[in-house]
Design a protein around this nucleic acid. Structure first.
Lengths: 204, 204
DNA sequence: GTCGGTAACTTTCCGGTGTATAGTTCTGGA
DNA sequence: TCCAGAACTATACACCGGAAAGTTACCGAC
């Protein structure tokens, strides 16, 4: 395999290293040439597997959407409910910050990649399903469409603000002292749709 | 002024053109050289005003934070309340999409620019003040810190998802037919903190 | 009014980056 | 054994941001 000419597993290695670099320095300073140098291959080697720089980012986004969909599906099958799906969303963002950033930055991606489109659609399906199951959980849902947007937006907002460091730089994070981001997510997203449904009561 | 050598108002022209380009193609493909060519100046001319490419983005972010702070302040002084402040946040994001993107992408900015830091702090101050005035509006606020995060996150999430086109590509936008994004924001953010306080009732 | 300092801008050069093309090395199956 | 194709390299090109030195225009002092 890894005999000096054939790297053996270049495709995987590129994706891993790309995720590392993007996590640390953002997608804009991500460079194919320096990445190839890190891996000890020529700067055109990744091109064979991904076609272009954009192809690497596409592949990262596909990986991300697939993992996000799988996580949300597992959570739903475990009966987690809306709030835990939201927490899972934020957990994914913090576990895979590079993937998350690329997934939601369409200017970095192809808009005609079928594999990407399929992965995205699957993830969005899980997402929408998770939030629209709210009514079954006892929340008073009158405006379903608004509930879907609100549910997605609040966890996406927390994930985005946290990943970009704006929760820290704004000083808001200090209000929570050492509280974990997932706990913050639970407390904040829990404010949606009124009080958490209490087994002992019906709808307000 | 504009006599062929001295541009006359290059600084302003660069910022305007940069905002246009970033709005259309994102911050990644924003290039000083093509921008300078568009304006008919040499590619090093902007450097005199901004120092570097990063300097241009810093200046955009400063502009953005100042305008956002001014909008939120005006809204607060007009007695708009939390919900209208949130709508204003989203309106700003759609009015100045390039500024908004750059403002919340710290990997594109200097982390030691005093002017930027001041503008950011002022805007975040307005933001936090707006959300934490919730209690005065009759909302039942038990967890103040969580309320601040929830309020910011939901409007930031809506703005981000809308700007990146993910509200459309997810199909969620279709649930609203032709509804305006600001109306969607009102309906979605209105779900926070329970029902909108009704003048005829106290807290739940 | 011209003179000099300074701000605004240009020219030239450098290293780094993505991509295209042609060539090289290895693998694996017939 | 051999050869077709996959994996990777070498080379060349256009574009990019930045540094340094030179040029032009403005503007206040005298």
């Amino acid at each position: 395999m890894a005999n000096g000419y054939h790297h053996g597993n270049l495709r995987t290695a590129v994706l891993e290293r790309a995720a590392e670099v993007i996590e640390q320095e953002g997608p804009y300073s991500f460079s194919l040439r320096s990445l190839a140098a890190d891996l000890g291959v020529s700067h055109t080697a990744p091109r064979h597997h991904f076609g272009s720089r954009e192809g690497v980012l596409n592949a990262l986004a596909v990986e991300g959407f697939q993992e996000l969909a799988a996580r949300l599906r597992a959570d739903r099958e475990a009966g987690g409910g809306f709030l835990e799906a939201g927490v899972e969303y934020v957990r994914f963002a913090t576990d895979r910050p590079a993937h998350f950033q690329v997934m939601f930055a369409p200017t970095l991606l192809s808009d005609d990649d079928e594999e990407l489109e399929a992965a995205r659609a699957a993830a969005f399906g899980e997402l929408q399903g998770g939030v629209s199951a709210l009514a079954e959980e006892g929340y008073p849902v009158e405006d379903g469409a608004a509930a879907v947007v609100a549910g997605w937006a609040i966890v996406h907002g927390i994930a985005t603000l946290a990943l970009t460091g704006n929760l820290d730089s704004s000083g808001i994070r200090r209000l929570f002292e050492d509280t974990d981001l997932l706990t913050i997510t639970r407390r904040s997203a829990g404010l949606l749709f009124g009080r958490r449904p209490d087994p002992s009561e019906g709808r307000s």
